[in-house]
Amino acid sequence: MAKKKTEAEKLHERIVGTGELAAIIGKSDRWVRQLTGEKVLQQVERGKYILGEAIQAYCEHVAGGKEEDKRPRLIDYKTEHEKTKAEKAALELEHMKGNLHAAADVELLLSDLILTTKSRILGVPSRISTECENESAEVVEDIVRREIETALASLAKYTPDKIGGEIDHGSTKDG
């Protein structure tokens, strides 16, 4: 009985063949040979491995490599991928809540606001020309100010809920 206990303690030092190691890790002989060729597993002699070292090396390989290696590990790529998926889900949620808008929607709305305001301001001279005939400078100034304030009022009426919805393309009462 004492002999079995000694053997159990030294199981990690036991030398196993390619087939036996393949059966333990649940892969084929060919897979074990491929890992040996890639220097993941180290042989003590042709087709022989120290069980403990081979299992540890295989576990490190499955985890993506040794952490002290300069190259990125598979686990690092998987972690980065999961992090990216979480960020994407958070952005989609914010979009659904209406707290986040597509850049194209914002650009379209702002372009519409700018063009509408520009056309209203450029239309001021033609709208006030008849009103300002034979008027004093003070009256002309009041009329110009009133028309510019009317043109700029559309900017003050801007609401974020228009983003992503139907946008008014300059169809207003006064032009």
Rank of each mutant, 00 (worst) to 15 (best):
Ile24Val: 11
Ile24Leu: 07
Gly26Pro: 03
Gly26Ser: 02
Lys27Pro: 07
Lys27Ala: 09
Asp29Pro: 07
Val32Pro: 06
Val32Thr: 11
Arg33Phe: 08
Gln34Ala: 10
Gly37Leu: 09
Gly37Thr: 11
Glu38His: 14
Lys39Pro: 06
Lys39Val: 10
Lys39Trp: 10
Val40Arg: 02
Gln42Ser: 13
Gln42Arg: 15
Val44Gly: 06
Glu45Lys: 13
Arg46Ala: 04
Ile50Val: 15
Ala54Asn: 07
Ala54Gln: 08
Ile55Val: 15
Ala57Arg: 05
Cys59Ala: 15
Glu60Tyr: 15
Glu60Arg: 15
Glu67Pro: 12
Glu67Cys: 12
Asp69Met: 04
Leu74Pro: 07
Leu74Lys: 14
Asp76Lys: 11
Glu80Pro: 04
Lys83Ala: 11
Lys83Ile: 07
Thr84Asp: 12
Thr84Gln: 13
Lys85Asp: 08
Ala86Asn: 03
Ala86Thr: 06
Ala89Phe: 01
Ala89Gly: 00
Ala90Thr: 09
Leu91Lys: 12
Leu91Ala: 10
Glu92Gln: 13
Leu93Phe: 05
Glu94Asn: 01
His95Met: 08
Met96Ser: 15
Lys97Ser: 09
Gly98Pro: 04
Leu100Ala: 04
Asp105Phe: 08
Val106Ser: 03
Leu108Lys: 11
Leu110Ile: 12
Ser111Gly: 07
Ile114Thr: 08
Thr117Val: 12
Lys118His: 02
Lys118Ser: 02
Ser119Trp: 01
Arg120Asn: 15
Ile121His: 06
Ile121Leu: 13
Ser126Tyr: 04
Ser129Ala: 09
Ser129Asp: 06
Glu131Leu: 14
Glu131Lys: 10
Glu131Phe: 06
Cys132Leu: 07
Glu133Asp: 06
Glu135Ala: 03
Glu135Leu: 01
Ser136Gly: 08
Ala137Asn: 10
Ala137Cys: 06
Val140Phe: 00
Glu141Tyr: 11
Glu141Leu: 09
Ile143Val: 13
Val144Leu: 04
Arg145His: 07
Glu147Thr: 01
Glu147His: 02
